[in-house]
Each structure stands twice: as structure tokens, then as C-alpha cells.
Simulated assay, not measured.
Amino acid sequence: MLAKEEFQRYLKQILLDDIGLYGQNKLKEAKVAVIGAGGLGCPVLQYLCAAGIGHLGIIDFDVVEESNLHRQILYGQTDIGLKKVQAAYKRLSEQNPNTIFDIHDCVVTEDNAWQLLKDYDFVVDGCDNFATRYAVNDACVSLGKPLVYGSILGYMGQLAGFNIGGSKNLRNLFPEPPNPEDVPSCSENGVLGTVPGIVGTIMAQMTIDMVLGRFEFRDQFILLNTRTLERTVLHIT
């Protein structure tokens, strides 16, 4: 049940007919793991925390660098050199003291993904490497966990909701990971700071929709051009 302070905090959401007190309590009861506290993970974490997700897992191994600050807006100049999980926890716990946080300072691999994710209801993948993406996908399939997937490059974003009620997963679309040397990266090709903000915010919305039982995006792979806002939807068969 919501405390009086929580009711006041989330009042504008509670007023929405399709959320109400019932939906807000579902958000409070949800446990969501967010993999990657970088460009995508920052807006995902901020909006899920602000929306009242009751339990958030922050999973990242990296430290804050100056080149992160134009897009990873959880962090400031004084956070440079700190572990992202610690800096993110400090900022988010100030944003919403009602949220419970788990800190996982590690790389997600095939060996630890199952153990890391088993206690969460939903998983959000905002990482930036294919080994982790496939380890997370396979663990979610094994555990029956819904997965929100996002990635960015330049002005482009990719989004999907996988394994929702047994729906398609990453391997149905891309059976095997590509050779990392054949795939461009943001570190080599650049990214505008607003792009992960746009894509990460949509990922947060998709996660909230999943928590509330709205699955309109299942079996869809969305390509988004953030400059033109042109959206292409591929239906996964």
C-alpha cells in the first residue's frame, strides 16, 4: 500500500484512468534490473525511479569518465573516477527515497547472468556489448523474465520487448552475435547526447507498460531515427 507521502508524490500518475491506485501499487511492487548505467541506463533509471518502481537493480562495472558527461546525465564533474553504480545510487536515492536499490558492480556474463537476474520481475538491457546482450537474453529466456532491449548509434536507436509471456527473443531475430569488429560503436563513431535520452526514455515507458500489463510492443523490433522521428517496425516471426 502507498504511504501518504507516496500518494502525494505520484498523484499526477494516479489521476490517470489506466493507472490509478492499483497501477501505482503494481509499480511499487515491481523489481526491475537495469543492465548498464551509461547513456541508456541513466534515463531508464531516472524515470523508473521517479515513476515509483519499488525495487531497482543497478548493474554496471565501469567508472565515470569526462567523455560520458554529455549524455550520461546522472553524473557530474565530481563523479569522474567513481564507479557508476555508486554515483548512480547516490543520485537516485536522493531523487526518490522510497525506492530500494541493489548495487551490482560487475560485468554480466554467461556465468553470472542467471544468478544476477533471478530475483527480478523485469529486465532492461542498456549495455553496449554483444556478449552481455546475449547472456542477458538467454538468462531471461531460461528464467521466463520479460526483457526490454535498446541500443544506439549516431542518431539511430533500436528498441524491442522480448520474451513477454513466452514471445520472441533476441535469438529469434539475430540467432548469433555478430563479430564485434564488424559492428561500429559509439566510442569510435560518436553519438549525440540527446539520442540515448530519447531512446532510454522510451525504454522506461516500455518497462512501465510491461509492469502495468500492457504489451502492445511484443514481437516488434523498432528502428528509430531520432533526427527525423521516423519509426520503422519489424515484426518478429
Rank of each mutant, 00 (worst) to 15 (best):
L170D: 06
R171K: 13
G190T: 11
E176V: 14
N172K: 09
T194L: 13
G157I: 10
N172M: 06
V195H: 06
Q158L: 12
V183E: 08
G161K: 07
T194Q: 05
V183A: 09
L159D: 05
L173T: 04
L192I: 10
P180M: 13
L159I: 09
L170A: 13
E176G: 00
C186D: 14
V195N: 09
Q158I: 01
V195I: 14
D182C: 06
E176C: 04
L159T: 08
E181P: 00
P175N: 08
E181W: 00
E188D: 14
N179D: 15
G193P: 02
G157E: 11
Y155F: 15
E176L: 14
N169Y: 08
P178S: 04
V191K: 01
E176R: 13
E176T: 13
P175K: 10
S187Y: 00
Y155R: 07
Y155A: 09
V191P: 01
L159G: 02
V183N: 04
E176D: 13
G193K: 01
G190C: 05
C186K: 04
E188P: 00
N189Q: 12
V191F: 01
P184C: 08
G161T: 14
F174P: 03
I164A: 02
P175E: 10
L173E: 02
F162D: 01
G161C: 15
C186H: 05
G190Q: 06
L173D: 01
G190E: 11
S185G: 12
S167R: 03
R171S: 05
F162Y: 13
S167K: 06
Y155K: 05
L159S: 04
N169D: 15
G193T: 07
P180S: 03
K168Q: 04
N169Q: 03
N179H: 06
G166L: 07
K168H: 09
R171M: 10
P177S: 08
A160Q: 01
N189A: 15
G190P: 03
E188Q: 13
L192F: 12
A160L: 02
Q158H: 08
S167Y: 05
G166I: 04
Y155I: 14
S187V: 10
M156A: 11
L159Q: 06
E188M: 09
N179A: 09
G193A: 07
S185R: 14
P177C: 08
S187P: 00
G166K: 03
F174M: 15
S167D: 05
E176M: 10
K168A: 15
C186E: 11
L170S: 09
E176W: 00
L192T: 03
Y155E: 03
Y155H: 12
E181A: 15
G161N: 13
D182P: 00
M156W: 12
R171Y: 08
L192Q: 08
E188T: 14
E181H: 05
E176A: 14
P184H: 10
V195S: 11
C186I: 14
E176N: 11
P178Y: 06
P175H: 08
N189M: 15
P178T: 07
P175D: 07
S187Q: 12
G190K: 05
I164C: 10
F174W: 10
F174L: 15
A160K: 02
L192E: 04
R171D: 05
E188A: 14
